[in-house]
Design a binder for these strands. Structure first.
Lengths: 213, 213, 213, 213
DNA sequence: TATGAATGAGGCTTCATTCAT
DNA sequence: GATGAATGAAGCCTCATTCAT
């Protein structure tokens, strides 16, 4: 929602063009964030943007194209946000920080949650793009941790699975704890601590369970 | 999809009634599984069921009511399925079995995945009911494992968070690995092994990370 | 709403039949009175009567037939009611009494108002029958008053027109003043007095207006 | 039914817009006049208007909104029509003229009758608006007549009641005498004369009836 | 490029009536 | 005669998209 220019002063053709498109983008973010994809009709979006319905089709092939661009765009903002909040500490600590920062971002951009959650079904292309963005970056982080000795005995393939688990858990928890009527609430401490424990010791004690049966 | 009777032999009124409702249920399962809730119009469902559109409203108040009944119904089938596949072994091993059995069930009832995934947005009431069904049972299992000494140092609140994480991870992975055009594929071994490791040792080594900073 | 028998003791075939039909009648009176003809679906009426939908068609050719029987039936109750309230006084006084009694009846049978008012459009056949019932009786009354010298210089044809005017005025006023949420209110005194004046002196003074121009 | 332009020559956007709305209005007038409100489906109206069903909703929020605008619109035409036909004569004579002119208008705009009569139930908002339009004007006329000495001894409250009676009688009579299959017939002379007598002398002779009993 | 009215397919739901039991 | 599930036509409304201005 990078509002380019609150006051239109003197824009050339190209700028006016981009400015209109941006208005539509911002409107879509608000509308989808508030009502969800299903209720995000072109009429509603253009009304919110303050342009005519026809204008929409000068900037997007169709409704779906816009919807599919929404999540990846904001998703990158999220990556930047989380990276900025991650200190230079031990890998396990970093992961907890990322976990927390994720929830902070949701509070910062409340629309994100709904846009993310519903995207899988309403904007599958955009969703896939977002997933790739995130998971590639995440696996890289885990590899680096392994090099540093903070992770042992996980293969690259297993990393990928782990990343998906973490993303899944995260998404799930965010839906469970972060929705609140009107605003977004913090995640309770016990969720954080459970996450830390799971990350550092696993759930079960080793006794009585051997890896190879 | 408990097809009561493939051939109508001689049913009394009550049975015919139930049979019709079941036909609608089965049809809905197929339609939602194939096209998703959003495309599951009453017209499509009744056509698939082989009844008139009006008949639908003799059995359900409205479209939403049916959609909200779909997941909890199949969800209980799933619980039974998983329970039947869980041996009397150490708690950690059991959890892995459950994890695997979940994916087996998806192959058994391929519609379940989509019905589950989309329910959160399209059938929120049914989704909540399903969630409660599952998470209550799950927390009980974890508590028992704690009593048996297989889990240490997790509080009840943390259990709840863990359950949500596990459910989230599971759902996510199922979407990632189980969709295939037309059919459903098995989950790769490295996903299982990654899961086992996460459960039994956590992700990170303890060195360099203290619980209290 | 002549509830034949509160307790069903021992009825033969014919009596049971009449009893069922009466139940449907009473139910229709309540339903139309409360919701209007448009909302008086067969389903609603039979539900209120406590019989199955199919039963309805054992007693009435179709929905319309019932609706058309409703008003004439209650209309005759009204005539009887008004007659019972009309004293043996001068014709003009009698007319005022009838006018008042009409509004009393509405309070006695609150369903009547709606059944009467909407009948013109939803049960035209029944409406016409009711109209004939009433207007024939009314003209007879006026004739008698003319014989007695209480009315002068009105022809039979003009009587008919007057009756229609009186009925029209009455119906209109009843709608204007008698509806109240839930119950029925009395008609204000000034309406009664305006009516009396109109009946006994007309609206305009004679000065300056000759009958023949 | 102010047909702006039978042939579309060269209209700008605003004009085209108004023109379409007018087409829908005219169509609705015809359809309601012919079939009544209950049968005036959006499909029928738009078909008659020669536009798509969806177009309807570009000009009216919903079906009811149009229906509620219909009567007040034509009602004002009627007021103008009647006023144009009312000469500068004695008040009583004027009232007779209005009475006659009302029936003339019905012959001029045959749809009006049905639109007026059914409005009370099918377009209550529009009906109320129309009523207010008319009755306010009517009471004003009566007051002026009282000032001029043409009416004596009626209070303002009684005026209001009288107006309602007159409107009721008029409506009733119009339904009784003006409907004819296909066309509209004139009102018989004896109705007019009965009306005049009622207005100028009342119905009953004074003898034997005192105002205070 | 911006506009916004026009389009028409498609969705959900209601309801009078039929008919097998 | 009573039942009530089944039927299918019809109604209102939404909405993505097109197109003339």
């Amino acid at each position: 929602m990078t509002q380019v220019n609150a006051k239109v002063t003197k824009l050339n053709r190209v700028e006016r063009n981009a400015w209109t498109k941006q208005k539509i983008f911002d409107a879509a973010t608000k509308v989808v964030g508030k009502y969800g994809y299903a209720e995000a009709s072109v009429a509603r979006i253009t009304e919110q943007a303050g342009v005519a319905q026809g204008t929409f089709y000068n900037h997007f092939e169709n409704r779906q194209e816009l919807l599919d661009q929404l999540l990846p765009k904001i998703g990158l903002d999220m990556v930047a946000f989380i990276r900025a909040r991650t200190g230079n500490v031990h890998a396990a600590r970093q992961e907890i920080e990322r976990f927390s920062a994720f929830f902070d971002f949701i509070r910062e951009v409340p629309e994100f949650l709904r846009i993310l959650n519903e995207a899988e079904f309403f904007a599958p292309i955009g969703y896939q793009k977002h997933l790739d963005n995130i998971s590639v970056a995440y696996v890289r982080i885990l590899r680096r941790a392994r090099l540093a000795g903070a992770i042992e005995d996980y293969s690259d393939e297993e990393f990928e699975a782990i990343v998906h688990m973490l993303m899944g858990a995260r998404g799930y928890l965010s839906r469970r704890y972060s929705y609140s009527q009107g605003g977004v609430t913090a995640v309770p401490d016990h969720v954080i601590s459970a996450y830390r424990k799971l990350m550092t010791r696993g759930l079960f004690t080793a006794s009585g369970d051997q890896d190879t049966p």
